[in-house]
């Protein structure tokens, strides 16, 4: 892809975590030189298992953690060079939804406060306009004015994740990172939230980075897929191609691990393996 058409362009990104404990500090290379582009309007899925580095890569991209090398260009801006006020203003353009809405929503804040905070911080609304805007956002994610004064613990897992999405959308971002945003949900709720994400992406023309470990979930939303294994991207392809013609052994292992969803096509408990 021509980098000039990409909204986000990552080159040779490295992230190294320091593990402090007893004895000497250990260094763990979480992301080991990865490169990818995300074109405007595209949804790139970053897929891999726990420890593959996908979340570290996303956090580096969001400037939540430090990088150990490489470059990130965002709409032509050198993202890693942004400091202080410049970075703060830039954060409005890229938002994130985390996996666990139990730990990513402040348990003492009402839905109104959680969703409205970004509007206040970025000076997007004031006074009565805040609540009006929050209600609009809640309606956009399938909630409503009735939910304004509820606390996170009064909501179901799916509702919490809708609040997290409304919070991310409050500042009207163009780039949304979804870090295992549906992995902790029940299957029917997962399907509903996935459908919501796809709808919002289209209506708001969002560019997305969708992080997941299950290729079957990714298939429903991704345009392109990058498969990560041990800190590196081992395969990168358009969605359809990756599913029909996976080229890397690890991609095939990931595909084989997804249950077929039909007892007649079992792979785990086959007639020969079970009496």
């Amino acid at each position: 892809m021509n980098p000039s058409t990409a909204l986000v362009s990552v080159r040779d990104l490295r992230v190294v975590h320091q593990r402090a404990g007893f004895g000497p500090v250990r260094h763990v290379v979480a992301v080991d030189g990865i490169s990818f582009d995300v074109a405007r309007g595209e949804t790139l899925a970053l897929v891999g298992e726990s420890g593959s580095g996908k979340t570290s890569a996303a956090r580096a991209l969001l400037r939540l953690i430090d990088t150990a090398g490489g470059s990130i260009s965002y709409d032509g801006i050198d993202l890693l060079a942004l400091r202080g006020e410049q970075l703060r203003v830039h954060r409005k353009r890229m938002q994130v939804v985390f996996q666990d809405p139990y730990s990513s929503l402040n348990p003492r804040h009402s839905v109104a406060t959680i969703v409205g905070e970004g509007l206040i911080v970025h000076g997007l609304a004031r006074g009565a306009a805040i609540e009006h805007r929050v209600v609009q956002l809640l309606e956009e994610v399938g909630l409503g004015a009735d939910d304004l004064h509820r606390l996170p613990r009064e909501l179901s897992g799916g509702q919490r994740q809708r609040v997290a999405i409304a919070r991310a959308l409050a500042v009207d971002p163009e780039f949304l990172v979804l870090d295992e945003a549906v992995s902790a949900l029940d299957v029917t709720t997962q399907a509903q939230v996935l459908a919501l994400i796809a709808r919002l992406r289209d209506s708001r023309k969002l560019t997305c980075l969708f992080i997941a470990h299950n290729l079957a979930v990714v298939q429903q939303v991704a345009t392109n897929i990058a498969v990560m294994y041990r800190g590196r991207i081992v395969e990168q392809a358009p969605c359809a191609q990756l599913f029909t013609r996976p080229s890397h052994e690890y991609t095939r292992a990931l595909l084989d691990a997804v249950p077929a969803g039909d007892p007649r096509q079992r792979r785990i408990r086959t007639p020969t393996s079970a009496t």
């Binding site: 029917t188 299950n214 079957a216 429903q220 991704a222 997804v258 077929a260 969803g261």
Partner: peptide
């Protein structure tokens, strides 16, 4: 049927 429809599967068109 609702549970079956919600199940993520690889063979379903995106």
């Amino acid at each position: 049927r609702e549970l079956l429809a919600a199940m993520p599967r690889l063979d379903r068109a995106p």
